[in-house]
Design a protein around this nucleic acid. Structure first.
Lengths: 340, 340
DNA sequence: CTGAAAGCGCTTACAG
DNA sequence: CTGAAAGCGCTTACAG
């Protein structure tokens, strides 16, 4: 059970009767080595179960082969799926992924930045919650950073979604289907409290109302805390307590929408006959809600790939100007708004 | 934008006018250092934005402060929630978490083992899919390993759930509520193909049937591939194609149960009046399904804590005999089987 | 309580 | 194409 002493390059070199340098050349593959030598070295590595010590390599190279991914809450279906794709892409490119969760405690983002520096992280993919700029403050001590999601600064590479446009489009869809009193679950415009997601999607929602000549009614805007299915269910009760009647609900995530659907179903309110409902993200279960949920699809794979591409480019080109990539979205119409 | 050169302990020592050793003592806090000296060193560290280089520390100590967590599929709500708790516990204890996904490709488990060794991982928490023993083969070259979930070997520390008992209990519950023809969605007993989860839960299901004097009917046992909501929906159609009528469904995960509910709802089959449905795991949305889902609750927090506790004990006690901890489960009765 | 030296396991110039 | 030496930034005995 005890771990036997690890073989080092020196051990391999001795067994293969070459110098450590030659072993290194074989392992990294950067320099041509005579085939017979390669074979001898590889046989020795196999015999000794040699695996290069990446701490040593990292110390020497200043690179660790690890990137960090920081997401607010891993248990959120959207985050989980995004992480899945990022890990997939990272492994394809030969990077390990270290995971950080930022929503659990205040100050977590700062802590992770310090951690990122300490662990010789080669890059950081960060989905910020709120204070984007705080992290960037010491950017000159940081490895390359790519921000993803709703980002409101321009100092860093970023992969964006047009949250405002998407919220506008899905609200327009509800208006086209006849809704006039549309509740916004997740909307919040308190600058110091609301997340960027909350504010941008609320703005898009109001854009659509304004276009249609509908005054927005603050009583129809409710922000569950936290953004869980349970809190969304409670939010619907809060709307009722305000006496705010509605003929549609635009929820700012699918998780929120599921809570809304649950309450409406439990009450016998029919969806879509009595109330239309939409979500955001198109997580797997959206299509299997009862009824199937109209939502905004964000391409998580594209998200992961673009983020990684920017990160790798930044690793080689530290001083290029920051770039922004926008990932497209698409409104997916399902039964919860009457189907296609 | 360019990263300025990082400060080292030598730089800090020079600025604080002490030796590098003293800086090290202040940073690690293992040896008493005079308060004035501590203050001077800390001021110097702050001024230089000093963060210790963990590659160097790892190389020197043979420890990296990082554990790896390997899960089959991060996008699964159960895995995502489990990871959330593991990350939480790990950070409390000062460990970083590196994430590995094993289901995406065959051979991933082996690859991760090699990666774990290379990255100087201090420990590995692994939720195996199938070939538990393959990973253990070279255990003497591995850091401490804790297996979690359904584990069918005894060479390693492990945190178990009594899957068979839980499946038996939830099937009993269905029988008590009057079900006689109970479909098992996720059940499979093909030794070379089925996962441990699939086989153990199927065994528990059959235990309960046998107790009640009900013969098990292979036509009622169906295993969606993969274990997604979409595949579960298709599985219900497959049952119909076989002409297998049922008055209850025991699904082996909540994700599978949601697919079952969706199909039944879409058809106008009433749950629980016409068909009873149960899930497994008690993920967040289980309580918000339509109707709310009866399921087996597994305490993910306890899972994470026990796994970490075993791992840390193993780090200090390499040669103690392997231990097993079993995490309790509980059947949560909701509307999908008629409620409490 | 603090200093000077050695070494963890790699890789990168520098020679041959 | 391969060897011998030096050094990445820490920490651990060894002295004082």
């Amino acid at each position: 059970m005890a771990r036997t002493a690890r073989a080092t390059m020196k051990d391999v070199a001795a067994l293969a009767q070459v110098s450590p340098k030659t072993v290194s050349n074989v392992v990294t593959g950067t320099v041509f080595v005579r085939p017979e030598t390669v074979e001898r070295v590889e046989a020795a590595m196999a015999e000794l179960h040699f695996v290069p010590n990446l701490s040593a390599r990292g110390l020497r190279n200043g690179r660790s082969g690890t990137i960090a991914v920081a997401l607010p809450d891993l248990a959120t279906p959207f985050s989980a799926d995004l992480l899945h794709h990022i890990v997939d892409v990272a492994h394809e490119r030969g990077f390990a992924v270290q995971i950080e969760e930022t929503a659990s405690e205040p100050g977590r983002e700062e802590e992770l930045v310090s951690r990122a520096r300490a662990h010789l992280i080669d890059g950081l993919i960060l989905n910020p919650i709120r204070l984007e700029d705080s992290v960037i403050e010491h950017a000159d001590h940081l490895p390359p950073v790519v921000l993803i999601g709703e980002v409101e600064q321009q100092l860093t590479d970023r992969v964006l979604i047009d949250s405002r446009g998407a919220a506008r489009d899905v609200t327009r869809h509800l208006i086209e289907r006849g809704a006039r009193r549309i509740a916004a679950v997740g909307g919040d415009d308190r600058a110091d409290i609301a997340t960027a997601t909350s504010r941008l999607r609320l703005a898009g929602y109001r854009d659509a109302l304004a276009e249609a000549g509908i005054d927005h009614d603050p009583r129809l805007e409710v922000n569950p805390f936290p953004w869980t299915t349970a809190a969304a269910a409670a939010a619907i009760d809060a709307l009722d307590a305000r006496g705010a009647s509605f003929d549609a609900v635009v929820a700012f995530t699918d998780s929120l929408a599921l809570g809304v659907l649950h309450v409406l179903n439990a009450r016998g309110t029919r969806v879509p006959e009595d109330v239309l409902v939409t979500g955001f993200d198109d997580v797997e279960i959206a299509a299997f809600a009862s009824p199937a949920l109209t939502t905004v699809r964000l391409d998580r794979r594209a998200f992961a790939e673009e983020a990684f591409r920017l990160l790798e480019e930044r690793m080689t080109e530290r001083s290029a100007p920051p770039r922004a990539v926008t990932v497209p979205y698409e409104v997916i119409v399902r039964a919860s708004t009457g189907g296609s």
